[in-house]
Each structure stands twice: as C-alpha cells, then as structure tokens.
Design a protein around this nucleic acid. Structure first.
Lengths: 242, 242
DNA sequence: TGCCCAAAGATTGTATACGATCGTGAATTG
DNA sequence: CAATTCACGATCGTATACAATCTTTGGGCA
C-alpha cells in the first residue's frame, strides 16, 4: 500500500517552491481538491474564508494562493481576489500540445530506468483508478489517472521534466472539468495498460510512441469549439422573461 | 527601436503570475539583474535589505521573493531567508536537456509563423548582443542572448512553451554563471546567425535542427564535472596559515 | 588549548490593523 | 420606466508588531 499511496507529499512541495509549513499544506490540499474535481473552475477563494477553514491568518493564505497562481491553478485579479482558474480554449490546446511533446520523451526515459518495484507502483496506480471508476467516483479516478502520469515522470528521475509534467497535469484537470466531452472513460484504461506492457518490456521506443498517441487521444477527447459561453449569451438565450 | 527593446515588460509578468504592482517590479528587477550576472548565485537576499532598496515593506518583498523562488531563481530556506539559487550539476544537465527538447520544437513553430517585422525584431536582439560583446559587457551580452531565445518563443505564439522557455533561460543564466568554461563567446553569434538564415527562409525543419544543435553545443560548453566546491575544500586549499 | 554550551542578536514566520479599491444596491433624475 | 450616480459594504493591498527560530559569540570546563 505504501508504494501505491499517491497522496504522499514526500517531495511534492518541489512544485510550489515553498518551505514546509502550513502554506504548503494548504496548497497541497487545494491542489488535491482540484485534481479530484471537488473544486470547480471559477470558484472564488476568499482569503478570509480559506483562512478560517485552515485556522490561519490571511498572510499564510496569500502565500498559498500566490503559489497556486504561479502554477496556473488559480487566477489572482487585482483587488478582486483569487479564483480557481478557468483555462481558455487556447490554453487547453497549448497544454496538451506541451504534454504531447514532453510526456512521450519522459516515458522513454522512464522505460529505460524502470525497476520491478516501480513497475509495481505504477500498477497500483492503475488499480486505484480502476477501483474509483468502479465506484463511479470520477473525481478520484481522474486523480489517480493523473497520479499515473506523474509517477512515470518520477521514475524518469528528471526533476525539471517532473515539475513540468506535474504542472501540466494539474492544469489538465481543470481543462477536463471544463471541456471534456467523451462519456466513455474507459479510454484511459486501454492506453494506460498498453503503456504498462511497454514498460514491462523495457521498450523505450514503444513507450514513447504509446504515450504520444495517448496524449493526442486525450486532446481529441475535449470539446474545444468556441461556444457562446458566459452571460453575454444569457440574455439572448432566455429571450424576454415570462 | 521599440521593436527591439528587450526590457519591455509588456506581458513579462505572465511568468510570475502576480498582478501588476510593486511586487512584480521587484521580481523583474531582480530577474534582470540575474540575467545580466549582476547578482551572483548564493548571494543572500535579506527581506529588510531588499525592502529598503525598493522602499517597500517586507510584505511586498516576500511576495516577490516567493515568486522568484517558484521560478527556481531563488531558494528560500526556512528561517534562513532567500538566496540566489545555486543550480546543482544535475539541475544544470536537466535544464539543458529540457531546452534541447522544447526549444527546437518552438523554433519550428516560430519559423512557420515568422513575419518580416518579427524577423527584424530578432535581428535587433542579435545586434544588441553584438554591441554588448564589443564593449566587453558580458553580462549584458548574455542578457540579450537570452532575449533572442525568448523572442523566438514569443513569435511561436505559444504561451505555455514561452513560459517554459523563459523559465529555463533564466535558470540557464545562473548555470552559466557557475559552470561556464568556454572562453570564446563567439560561438553564440554563429549559431544565432545560422538560425536567422533558417528563419529568413521560413525553413521550419532547418530552424529546428539548428536550434537543437545550438542547445547541445551550449550544454557542452559547461564544465559539469563534480568538483570539491565550497568551503570544505577551503581549509585544504589554504593549508596552514603563514 | 580545544570543545561544548548558553545567552544575545539578528532574521524570518505569523498575526493583526488600517487604508485603498472595487462591486452592489438604492435613490434620484430625465 | 430606464439609466445614471452615489454611498455603503466587502475584500484586498500594505505596513507594522510580536513570536519563533537560527546564528553567533563569549565564557566555562575538561
């Protein structure tokens, strides 16, 4: 179980570049909530409110929110406050383009470095995802799916890439919350298991190729057409009241 | 001149995810100082001291330092304070590996999108670098060299990659300050001008290829052998006094 | 003489207070 | 009745004060 625990914040703090402390805890808590889709894009994160929840002053909360803002998970608007980020369609494309470049290269490195223990750890991620899926806990399933991708980067043992991947995956979670269109989530399982086979074989080229296809497939699972979102269309959509 | 002004902080703030304000100004100021090698790795950035320089309270300084820490330009040690980061040898390798993956792809995109105006802008960067080199102002030359790489990412018009490239280049500046071994800096000019030719021809494949070679060349210009650095060697180096 | 420990100084971590800015709603006017 | 303006409330931006922690330095002891 220990090897499979995705919540272990051993060196997770590296992403936020904060010294261990309460601010980091808040960051990690909010990040997890985002990854599990417990916090929707656009939700306001009032400093007072967050501070009261965690029992700290606004000073600490501000540090946490700024760190999250730097990871593009939160948007800070001057004199307005912090909100869960709402990635634009353009940003969604860019994030998945970046993933399509970086993650295959990372998968290749991971395949070469993979130990049996790490292989088992990856499998545990997939099982956790499967269990969550079976319970129809989509949020948790997505969380473990992201954990799988992150774990691969960690196995590649490349901190710069790991940091990038972690950041991109967090942003992907928000993007999926906004733009996911595919109803069948089984797509995950197939690609991930195919990737596992490549890792078992230590076939770097195969891992790279599968991961690239997988990311492109995820990208295509988004509905990124321009829509008349927001309140501008609201009046038109409703017509006259009554 | 306007198109060539590399200091323009138009959307430079996107890297730090801070609302416009004094904290951002401090970030940008310190970042520029780092890029110009006016601030050496390891230098302590006392909150009081920085605050007095810019005429703000520690609150603002802390926000700036945390933003810089998130960009890996500054290291914050609990109860110790903030220091200009000292990238390890491993980190140096990783940063240039990341650049070798990302920047060629970005160069390809830029070559396809390049307008004549943007081409002129890039040329201006090279000229500025040349002028600084002629004045033997190495710091400023390096600054413009980095600006050239950043400008390419901006032309590619991909914010996610641009942000990554900017971050990697900033870190590269620290790495070069610590590990640069090559005395001839003319290598820059050659690769950069070759890249310009590819851009003029709108040859995406050529631009990608040249950029990849260029990054690998830069990487090889570093002396990344393990050395007995630091004070541990100091006593040995000095022997007994007198 | 060298090492260990303790107290003072300096610096950061956190909380709180006050001023500035923005959003909202009611009142007023065309 | 609709549009505009103004004042109020809420929230953030910043400064300052106090508490916690680390570093340093001086003295004591083996």
């Amino acid at each position: 179980m220990t090897t499979a625990d995705p919540e272990s914040s051993d060196n997770l703090h590296a992403v936020f570049a904060l010294p261990p402390g309460r601010a980091l805890d808040i960051c990690l808590n909010i990040q997890t909530a985002l990854l599990e889709h417990k916090l929707a894009p656009g939700v306001k994160l009032s400093e007072d409110e967050v501070g009261e929840i965690y029992g700290v002053s606004r000073t600490v909360v501000r540090a946490a929110l700024q760190a999250l803002a730097h990871s593009n998970l939160v948007t800070i608007r001057k004199n307005r406050g912090a909100f869960v980020a709402e990635p634009s369609i353009r940003e969604a494309h860019e994030v998945f383009q970046a993933r399509a470049l970086i993650e295959p290269a990372v998968a290749r490195m991971a395949a070469q470095a993979m130990t049996d223990e790490q292989l088992a750890g990856l499998k545990a991620h997939l099982e956790a995802e499967h269990v969550a899926l079976h319970k129809e806990d989509m949020g948790r399933a997505l969380f473990h799916s992201g954990g799988f991708h992150t774990a691969i980067a960690e196995i590649a043992d490349h901190r710069v890439f790991t940091s990038m991947v972690r950041s991109l995956i967090s942003r992907s979670s928000l993007i999926i919350a906004l733009y996911w269109k595919r109803s069948d989530t089984a797509c995950e399982s197939h690609s991930h298991h195919a990737l596992m086979r490549a890792f078992e074989l230590r076939d770097a080229a195969m891992a790279e190729s599968i991961q690239k296809s997988h990311i492109i497939d995820l990208h295509s699972g988004l509905d990124l057409r321009e829509k008349p979102r927001g309140d501008s269309s609201l009046s038109a959509a409703l017509g006259r009241t009554g």
